[in-house]
Design a protein around this nucleic acid. Structure first.
Lengths: 146, 146
DNA sequence: CATTCCAATGTATAAATATACATAGCCATT
DNA sequence: AATGGCTATGTATATTTATACATTGGAATG
């Protein structure tokens, strides 16, 4: 349940500005997630969200840490969603983060990944075949929850 | 006074993380700015600061959502041709237009589009499957005539 | 099964932030 | 000087967010 709710939160924030947690709560209610403000406070913490002049938003990709981060930490911080088409995965990231996320992924040298191409907020991952793409997608989706 | 204080706040934030307004207040006190929390709340608003997992931070320069051109107008202005490969479309655009065209396309949030990656004069569009790619190609081709 | 963990969440409240209202200082105009 | 308008700020409080503690349900283990 929590995982789905986190996804719903991400989706809502991509679509519409949200200025406080009660607003978010009512938005989630329309999608049949009924939780209290306390839970959302925790969710927001777990999703590393920021609150600014336009409400809650995703991390801005500005470097905060010094060393080369792992794919896991990169994606759990800057990844927004994963989608699959046949043997390809399309990662959406916060704007400006696609390159560093792809670099972190490349560093892993996963055998199932033939290569990656990154734009500004999108990474394309080419996998060997559909099956391996599915496996990687699953792993990445888990990272979104972490 | 306010201007100087704002500068001091910026300096402090660049140097050290600040997690709440009272912490900021004490920091300012050391630099001989003695104001109340209320004033800092207003300052933070005026400086467009964000609050996130690492305390207050600067805006990321991401443009606020103003009115941006539609995919249709963008592509009919700058699109040159569409080609398809299985579930992928490759758009050729006038040079330098690929990024804005891709951005306009992203803004549409078409469900059949998993994501786009743009270079200088080429946009790669990843669709869910071949069928949807064909549909989108048709629509884009029509825009080329318009 | 019963038992023990543990994650997820709610409840109640503390902590942090925003704001309505009041006041003081500063120019400019009369 | 008196008046009015404007900005910055404090005070008191409302609003928003975080958290300590309790509860529940499900998975793992004996």
């Amino acid at each position: 349940m929590k995982a789905e709710r986190h996804n719903a939160i991400r989706t809502i924030l991509m679509e519409t500005p949200v200025f406080n947690q009660d607003e978010l709560r009512r938005n989630l209610l329309r999608r049949s997630f009924d939780v209290t403000q306390a839970t959302l406070s925790r969710d927001i913490h777990e999703l590393h969200l920021y609150k600014g002049p336009n409400g809650y938003s995703f991390p801005n990709g500005a470097a905060e840490d010094t060393e080369l981060p792992s794919m896991d930490s990169m994606f759990s911080s800057f990844g927004l969603e994963v989608r699959q088409a046949i043997n390809q995965l399309v990662l959406r990231t916060t704007t400006g983060s696609a390159q560093p996320v792809a670099a972190a992924l490349d560093r892993e040298r996963l055998p199932e990944v033939l290569g990656t191409i990154a734009g500004d907020d999108t990474v394309l991952i080419i996998c060997q075949d559909q099956k391996r793409a599915s496996q990687l997608r699953q792993r990445l989706e888990e990272l979104l929850e972490a």
